[in-house]
Design a protein around this nucleic acid. Structure first.
Lengths: 201, 201, 201, 201
DNA sequence: TATGAATGAGATTTCATTCAT
DNA sequence: CATGAATGAAATCTCATTCAT
């Protein structure tokens, strides 16, 4: 029982490392088998195919990130504040876990319909999260009405691109240095105006 | 003499169709050979490898799009106006040429370092274009200072994601329906304020 | 477990037959696969490339021949006598195993540097064997001093050429008919004088 | 007319260089075409196939070497003396023209029956030359009777192996350093006794 | 004579997956 | 649960040769 879980984890860890470094097609099952110190049959016992293994990994990573984000959201008050916190967590997480970023943001494109569906599903989870709080912010009156669905995808895409660029060029260093500009663009983009201290013009 | 160019085009056309439909790895050279009505050796005479063929295609498509964008930019006056025009052209182009979108935005991720480098190179061309005009807008005083490089990538990523989603879900239909929201978010995000008619409050 | 070894042998046997008959380049992996009654992947499981398979075969054959030679050497007394025995064994072996001769003597030339290095390595094993006993014969006083290294290669080359000619022209028939002349040339060449019965002039 | 010959020579030169360096199979017609600064069709105009080109080259080189050898033979008197001169010329020629050695001695093995036939034909030319003078030496009474055909091939093989080893290991350096040992082995091998000055025992 | 684009059969190699042990 | 030898379809790429210009 316990061992079973351990083996599964070992496989997922090996897969995470290799998929992140080399991509899905460039990684051979043999390599995963070797890195996980298990046999071929062993991997196929736990995961029925390479594709399913990849998807299981995506789910695992997305779940973990979503969990962190939701923790942060729960910790904060106010829709816009929650959003700011969430963005910060995402950037910090991706910055500190390069592999996570590589797999979640880079892999799963152009690998055929099944892969794209999976990616879309995962992204829509996060888009939904953003959308909800944007809708809440509008309801609160913190920001003017806007198409929150499009906005959510705009934000996801923006983050995706910035992180990808950071992975490859190393800029900005650290990645989180982009956070203030990003927040400025995002919040201004949705018409949010910082509350000024009393007596401001 | 002339025929040489024609054959090259025929190969590129076949490759464009197939790569767009099925992706890089899912497309076999045999299929391209067949679709282009040429022999295997013929393809390899013009392109030394499948990868090089793919890159040549990316360049060709990116060049065409960039050309359209720059035409539009040249046609307009005023940095912000140019930017608006450019975004419109990009969205319209991608909307009307699904293949272009599929190849430029979807392929080339997670296919290994060489592919990512190429994608980065192409994206940076467009980022540079955006950046230049943003800098100009700041110089003109049309918008307040901002990190224009990050902004450029934010925009590219946002467009990328929206188009990808459109390709898969068909929403929004038509894609260009997203343009007003997009412009609103983008322009507001950079602090641009629509010039109000004289006498407005 | 045991089967693994058997498969390996089956592949090597098929390769021996085909390489001997048709040469390295003229033999397709497909033919070996078919002759060995195994799958393509099966061959590649045991040998990572056609070249490596060829080298493994060379080693196997050279090992076997060397073993026979050393057995004969151990069986005899006296350096010159050992040498005579060894030459006899080599010629008899090559004469009775045409394939061995074809592969060891004919293949591996002009197939690129890696092949030549291998051939050189194998030949130097036999050259070393000859050299040792020549040195011993000198030490014993059976023959006058001479450059034994050059002599060893001279002998190898001579045998090589004779056997090659025999393979192609069938002359001399049988090959071993050349043995007396060969021994005469070789032994006289190193200044060895047959011990004459007592009282000879 | 003159140009035709020049082009032919340019092709042969390029082929000589490449075949010597990389071997027959490793050398692509494209490379020869490029090195000879001619077009594909041009090469095929002068030589109907790659194989024929190779054979033409072998003939050219063998002819040149044979010419040198015969010049030397004509210059000397006495069968044994002629033989000594011929061996010296061969070794000096091969030593100074590495390419010649590489092609004449290394190539043409294991490349299929046509190649072997060609090699045999060329070697038999030289074997014949040696045999003739050995027979003469016997007729002169300079050496005792012996199987001169076998002896001729023994010598050829010995030279072949020594030169091959020199090409790869660089030893002996210079190659001609092996000449005295070689002559000693060869001449002693055929029972030749150096004429001693008057009054020798 | 010369060119070089085009041919197309064929070669080696890869790799996800299976299954007897 | 685990092993790893074996499968076999499929993929990319090579290259001697041809032929219209």
């Amino acid at each position: 029982m316990r061992d079973k879980e351990l083996t599964r984890e070992r496989i997922l860890d090996a897969a995470e490392k290799l998929f992140a470094e080399k991509g899905f097609h460039e990684t051979a099952m043999d390599e995963i088998v070797h890195a996980a110190k298990i046999s071929k049959g062993g991997v196929y016992f736990h995961f029925p195919s390479k594709e399913k293994l990849f998807f299981a990994l995506l789910d695992k990573l997305a779940d973990a990130l979503q969990y962190e984000v939701q923790e942060e959201i729960a910790r904060r008050r106010g829709a816009v504040n929650k959003i700011q916190g969430a963005l910060g967590v995402v950037l910090k997480s991706l910055a500190s876990k390069r592999r996570l970023a590589q797999i979640l943001l880079r892999q799963g494109y152009g690998l055929g319909p099944a892969f794209e569906r999976k990616r879309l599903e995962i992204y829509s989870r996060f888009a939904q999260l953003i959308k909800e709080h944007l809708d809440e912010a509008i309801a609160e009156g913190s920001i003017p009405p806007i198409n929150t669905e499009i906005t959510a995808y705009v934000w996801l895409g923006a983050i995706n691109e910035l992180v990808l660029r950071w992975i490859y060029t190393g800029k900005p260093d650290p990645l989180t240095e982009a956070l203030p500009t990003l927040l400025e663009i995002f919040l201004r983009g949705i018409g949010y105006k910082k509350k000024t201290k009393k007596g401001a013009p």
